[in-house]
Amino acid sequence: MLNAFQEGVVVVVCVNLIAVLGMSVLTGFTRLFSFGNAGFMSIGAYTAAICSVQLRLPFPLAVLCGAAMAGFIAFLLGSLTIRLRGDYFLISCLGFGECVRVLFNYTKGLTGGANGYSGIPYRTTAAVAFFCAVLAFVIAWNFIHSKYGQSLSAIRENEVAAAANGIDVVRCKKMSFVFSAIYAGWAGGLYAHYLRHITPALFNLGKSSELIITTVLGGLGSLTGSVLGTLVVQLLPEFFRGLAEYRMLFYGIAVVLVILVRPAGLYGYREFSITGAVRFVRRLGKGDGQDG
């Protein structure tokens, strides 16, 4: 149905989308910035790979273990760092992400060190990745529109008022952090079973910033915006393969442009709605009729 190239594109987009959705909940809805989510992806990828190769667990279970492990580590880390404010929290995440990378470089016996971990079976087909991405979106959507999700938005808007109205701010923030880590771990597990060979350098600071940039581009506080952002960030480089070296440069320019022109991101706080789109198209149609 799809050739290898198309299949690869679908998998990469879907895997990144899952990680970005987690980021969107954390950054877009709770306003916590993490530059360490690639670290959680890495934990998810290695855990899933080891479960799959060494422990011979079936693929879904291996990915589940990867996601659970990432969530568990986030819970421990969050217990220590979630009370930090603004930039300090961001820095602690950045440090964590780098620590994970370096750690996996050193643990040669378990992870293969810098050479990477190979022999992972190929399981993440385009269909599997797509199914997971849809599932991830549905879960995130329901989470955001649940009572918990509303509490997160309240914390984003005004932490003092949120606490005054009976929201357990620390618990909610930690929950959002663990949620994003589980998503990152999930994405990492899938990614490992697509690449079949993973190295710690795949999940470096560049990857973390890519996740953040995608979320900001799509719009903080919009899940559909995150989908759009992922499509833009992942697909555009495919069309401009020759310029791949300049990828980070374009990210930089894109972020500056968004900040200047659309500070709320491509979608801002709104969600894409089909009725809204239909209304927009109708209005366009009417406009044409009058002009013609």
Partner: peptide
């Protein structure tokens, strides 16, 4: 200290 980017009803629901 109301939530400026939430609707009136959402503000009440946070309460």
């Amino acid at each position: 200290q109301i939530f400026t980017k939430l609707t009136v009803r959402e503000n009440l629901m946070i309460g």
